[in-house]
Every structure is written in structure tokens, then in C-alpha cells.
Simulated assay, not measured.
Amino acid sequence: MCADQLAGIGDEAAASLPDQIAAITALGWPGIELRTVDGVALADLDSSRFQRVRRAVAAAGLRVVCLDSRIGNWSRPITAPPADDLRELDVLADRCAALGTRYIRVMSYLSGGLDESEWRSRVLDRIALLADRAARHGVVLLHENCSGWAGSDPDRMMRLVEAGGPCLRLLFDVGNGIEHGYDSFGVLERVLPHVEHVHVKDAVGAPGRAEYVLPGEGHARVHDCLRLLLDRGYSGAFSLEPHLVTRPHEGRTATDPGPFLSAGRRLEHLLRAAPTGVA
């Protein structure tokens, strides 16, 4: 494990940017992933507030590994028009350039009541449209295995990669399988060559009733996933998203960075204990 690969989603630790930065630097990690500041999505910050974000991150010496968008997430079904997605992509692409990253996290849309065939067709068309726009901006969209048409099915993930071309790669969250009802390790084995970014969380429970726990203490086979990634030469970020306090889709935000810091130390332990060779 290379220490340079460690990062965390800032608002999982705290709402304010100074507290987000303080949590990441307390862990001694070099990377931060940005999603919201004081509860405001990064794309919705006005230019002056964004410039303050840029200066603060640079002053802390942190590397921005990814920007998390709302494109395709639980709040935007595929039946919604593409205007909001395109606007957010344009804004975040400019902010990628300012922050020195090329990655934007996306998802693949809830159905909005459409049947599977129409849902699939619209998602693939929308992703192709977005990937073309991303190519013009020089950024890469990272599809997360979460809610959406391709969220839990590796075959659908591969279809998405085909539709998006070189500007659509995969973000694999090792803990999402508990909430969405699949074996994360089995899916990761199938899609690993296309994975360029990793989120780390763990959970127990069942779909719709996941309870999040420290990495390695749940049923998501986090250790096995990390070991597989390292064994296959994965060189991207391991970005901590423990969900112990923060749950964006539930409107829950962190007020105490303690759980995030505990999860970070546990992630470090798991990576140190992940020898090559997967059983």
C-alpha cells in the first residue's frame, strides 16, 4: 500500500471546509475528495466561495482526487431532462481544472417508472451524451456502483463503459453491496480492469436496512476487496466514505470527526494487512 493513495470524502468528516481539511490532515493523508461545503454541492457554490475552497485546499497541501456530482444519482431519475446534468458537468469540469483533478463521480439514474428496456436505452444515450461533453472538457466520468441502472450488475457496468468510451470509467465502492444486495467482491472481480477510483465503507444488514460499521467489521468483504485491488496493481485512490455519520440521501451531516478518524485508522490497518495473493 502506498500512502499517497489515501484520501477521504471531506464532508463525511465535517460540514465546513476547514474541519474537513483538519480531519484529512489529522490522518496525515495527502488526498481529499470534494462533495459539499457547508451542505452546498460543489457545483452550486458561487465563484467567490469556490475560490476560497480552492485556496484553502492548496494552502493545506492536499491533492483533490475527485469531485462528486449529483449526475445520475438518487435525486435525478432518467426521466428528468438532461439540462441539470450538463450544467453541473460544465461547472465541475471547470472546477476540476482549477483544482488539478480530472475525475467527476456520476451514477446511472433511477428508472422514473420506465420499463427496463426504455430505462436502459435512455441511460446509455444519456451517458454517451455526457461522455462526449466530458471529452471536450478533458475530464473523466467515474460511474459508482450505487443506485441506478448499472449500479449493481457487472454486465450493465460494462455496457456503460462501452457507451461512454474512454471518458467513462468505474468508481468501485467496496461497501455498497450490502445496501444494494450483491457480493461486492464478486462484482469487483468482473469489472476490476475498468476501475480507476475506490470508495471504502463497510456495513451489516440487508438491502434497504444497511447499518454502517468500521471498515473490516461488516459483511462487505472489504479486506478481500482491498487485497484483490493491491494484488492486481491498482494505483488509484482509496477514498474513505464510511457513512458512520454522514448520509447525504438522508440529510444527515457530520458534526464530530471522531468516527471518520476511527474509520481512517482502520482503513490504514486493513491496507497494511492486505498481502498480495487472494485466497
Rank of each mutant, 00 (worst) to 15 (best):
A3K: 11
D4P: 02
D4Q: 15
L6F: 10
E12K: 04
A13D: 09
A13M: 07
A15P: 02
S16A: 15
P18A: 12
I21R: 08
A23E: 07
W29N: 07
P30K: 04
L34Y: 04
L34N: 05
D38W: 10
S48C: 04
F50T: 02
A59C: 10
A59V: 06
R63H: 14
G72V: 04
W74T: 12
T79R: 06
A83V: 06
D84W: 03
D94F: 00
R95T: 00
C96W: 00
G100Q: 11
G100C: 11
T101W: 10
V106L: 11
M107T: 05
G112N: 10
D115F: 11
R120C: 13
R122D: 08
D125Y: 05
D125H: 13
D125E: 15
L130P: 00
D132I: 00
D132M: 01
A134Y: 00
A135T: 07
H137Y: 04
V140I: 15
V140T: 15
H143C: 10
C146S: 15
D155R: 13
R156H: 13
R159Q: 15
R159H: 13
L160F: 02
A163M: 08
G165M: 05
C167I: 00
L171A: 08
V174Y: 04
G181T: 09
S184Y: 09
F185R: 10
V191I: 15
H194L: 12
E196L: 13
V198W: 10
G205K: 05
G205H: 07
A206Y: 07
R209H: 14
V213S: 01
V213E: 00
P215K: 01
G218I: 02
H219R: 15
H219K: 13
H219A: 15
D231H: 15
L244Q: 09
V245A: 14
T246L: 11
T253I: 14
G258Q: 13
L261K: 02
L261H: 03
A263G: 09
R272N: 06
A273N: 10
A273C: 10
P275G: 09
G277L: 13
